[in-house]
Computed example of a mutant assay.
Amino acid sequence: MTQDDIGFDDVYLQVDGVTVWTGRIANGQTLDLHNVPPYSFDSTQRAGVQVVLREADSTDPDDLLGSYIVQPQHSRPLGYSENGADYTLHLTSTA
């Protein structure tokens, strides 16, 4: 479900504050994000990295759809449901 429940959401995915993917998602749409470049953990990030999903708004501040700290060896889905959104991100991280 899109954040506003109509049309498309213009969303972007950030890892530690760096935008790694942007796209447009329709209600009920599934996207394959295998084109997102791999993110490598370094020795200073053993506590994890922040993975944030936001929806871009042109008329007001962007909406936070959710935020997680992902640690090395992570392999569970992340649900993003803030501000009325319903997104699930499946990712696998390795050390």
Rank of each mutant, 00 (worst) to 15 (best):
S93H: 03
G17P: 11
P38N: 12
T59V: 06
L91Q: 08
D4E: 14
G66Y: 01
L53I: 10
W21K: 07
T22S: 14
I6R: 11
D9G: 03
P38D: 07
Q50W: 01
A47D: 15
R24V: 07
V18N: 11
D32T: 13
L13A: 00
D63R: 10
V51S: 01
P77N: 09
L33Y: 07
M1P: 08
T92W: 14
F41M: 06
T88P: 00
V49Q: 00
A56T: 10
G79P: 00
S67L: 07
P77C: 07
L13C: 04
A26R: 09
Q29Y: 10
D4I: 03
V52E: 07
S43I: 14
I69L: 15
V36A: 07
T92C: 07
V52R: 07
I25S: 01
Y39E: 03
P72K: 09
Y39I: 15
V18E: 15
D4N: 12
W21G: 00
V51N: 00
S93T: 15
S43G: 06
Y80E: 01
Q29T: 11
A85N: 04
A85L: 05
I69S: 15
F8L: 10
N83Y: 09
V51H: 00
V51P: 01
S40N: 11
T88N: 07
L65N: 02
Q29F: 00
T94I: 09
G84S: 12
L91Y: 09
Y39M: 04
R54K: 12
S67P: 01
L65V: 06
D16K: 08
A85T: 06
D32W: 05
G23N: 04
V20S: 03
I25W: 02
T22Q: 13
H34S: 15
D62L: 03
G28E: 06
N35T: 15
V11N: 00
E55G: 11
S58H: 08
T94K: 06
D4Q: 15
D60R: 13
D42L: 15
H74N: 09
T19P: 03
D16T: 10
F41D: 02
V51M: 03
L13E: 00
G66C: 10
S81E: 11
R46D: 08
A26D: 06
D4H: 05
Q73V: 03
N27L: 12
D57C: 14
L53Y: 04
A85E: 02
L64F: 05
G66D: 05
T94P: 01
D32E: 11
T44Y: 15
N35D: 15
Q14I: 10
G48W: 03
R76A: 12
M1C: 11
Q73Y: 14
L33M: 09
S67N: 09
L91M: 14
G7H: 14
G79S: 10
D9M: 03
P37F: 06
E82I: 08
G7D: 06
V49F: 04
L89D: 08
G17M: 05
N27G: 02
L53A: 03
V36Y: 13
S67E: 08
D10N: 12
L89T: 09
E82D: 14
A26Y: 09
A85P: 00
R54M: 12
D60A: 12
G48L: 04
N35P: 02
Y80A: 02
Q14M: 14
V36N: 01
D42R: 10
